[in-house]
Design a protein around this nucleic acid. Structure first.
Lengths: 222, 222
DNA sequence: GTCAAGTTTATTGTATACAAATACCACTGT
DNA sequence: ACAGTGGTATTTGTATACAATAAACTTGAC
């Protein structure tokens, strides 16, 4: 399926915004951006609409498009919701998971283990993402899975940051094991609790991280 | 704050789609719609982008915009997620609710009571919506509240339909009382359970409703 | 020197023009 | 009769032109 220019612009801009290439509150100049992407303003503005819908931009009528990075408060709120969604995925997955699905999840977890012993943060992040995505699908609720993925994408750089905290990768791996064990036993309550905690810990401890947070550090971590 | 044409088109189209003015899978003709709204294709297409982002349209490259009504399965999935979000709102609200917030919620509930005794379904729907919106805010998590509102809007006509089922309005009111009582006692667990059930019941029993569901009936109910 | 009003400039919002791709349809050949 | 082909018409995607509004600047009065 071929893609419109507007779509590729959207993807590119989304990644640029999420990874912090633009400062919070910065106004995106339509003409300059259009030149930069070698397109006219029309597809660019269509991309703006989509990005605004997902909260990455704020479109102020007659004033322009402003990038909106979540503040610390909104970030904690988003983690709180993410924890709930993942917990829900775990609860449902524990009841609905197939043998094949479990095998795939186990596979992703094993890749995580390998990345951990290699000390390869990038690989761990990648396989961790796969682990969670498989779990979303295992919930058997495609709408839930899609919402979870949407939110995961927005939290992406912040989840990634945390892996660089000393010991976090190992701790995360331990939590994965507990999640899998709950899934294997079909313990919905346990799966929910473990997953919620697995995400909530990231939100709750965020203030610590933010204390030493600044733009350049974040970009490096990403 | 004045509004762009694209915004008002988006609102109008959203309402038209949600209330079922277009059939599922129907292609929206840009030119005809532009004429109908007395605008050019440009603002219309910008509105399309936003509507596609919220799942109301599917934009197929080079083929057009197709309205996408949730099927019965997706609908049940959405109710399942809505139940979780509302339950979460209840849990948080029980811990964070202020006296003033509780008073407002009580106020909305009283209006519901009045609508119930008057047999006024429209008024009940309106005040019920206010009741739930106050609850979202009471969660103290603005991101959660905004997500809950988004999903509520999409489920709007289906929630509304249910009020026309014999006895549902009275039953709903009883659930509201239980929710308030849990909030008053600060019982987070109870508030979550009650609210989740309050929404889940709508999703779970949906198959019954759908058995006799058809387009014209739905439009009448809305 | 500062503030205010008016004018200029820049920027957003919308309409139109054009390009590119798809759908439609008649026609031909088997 | 039917599949395939070519050509036309329709429709989407993008560029550009124009209109409307807000920002920036100039000028003038106090």
């Amino acid at each position: 399926m071929e893609q419109r220019r507007a779509d590729s612009i959207r993807q590119t801009l989304e990644q640029l915004i999420i990874t912090g290439a633009f400062a919070d509150g910065e106004r995106l100049d339509e003409i300059r951006l259009a030149e930069r992407f070698s397109v006219s303003r029309t597809p660019l503005r269509e991309a703006f609409q989509t990005l605004a819908a997902s909260g990455l931009l704020e479109l102020v009528p007659r004033r322009g498009a402003y990038v909106r990075h979540p503040g610390i408060i909104e970030l904690v709120e988003m983690f709180e919701v993410m924890a709930e969604l993942e917990g829900m995925c775990g609860r449902l997955a524990a009841r609905r998971l197939t043998d094949d699905g479990l095998a795939q999840i186990n596979g992703a977890a094993e890749e995580c283990e390998k990345a951990l012993s290699d000390g390869d943060t990038d690989a761990y992040y990648r396989e961790n993402e796969r682990f969670h995505n498989l779990l979303y699908d295992a919930s058997g609720n495609t709408f839930l899975a899609s919402e979870a993925r949407k939110l995961q994408r927005r939290l992406q750089p912040f989840r990634r940051m945390q892996l660089h905290v000393r010991g976090r990768m190992k701790q995360s791996m331990g939590e994965h094991r507990a999640i899998i064990s709950a899934l294997e036993e079909g313990d919905a309550q346990m799966a929910e609790t473990e997953l919620r905690g697995h995400i909530a810990i990231q939100g709750e401890k965020f203030n610590d991280l933010m204390a030493q947070y600044n733009r350049s550090k974040m970009r490096k971590a990403v």
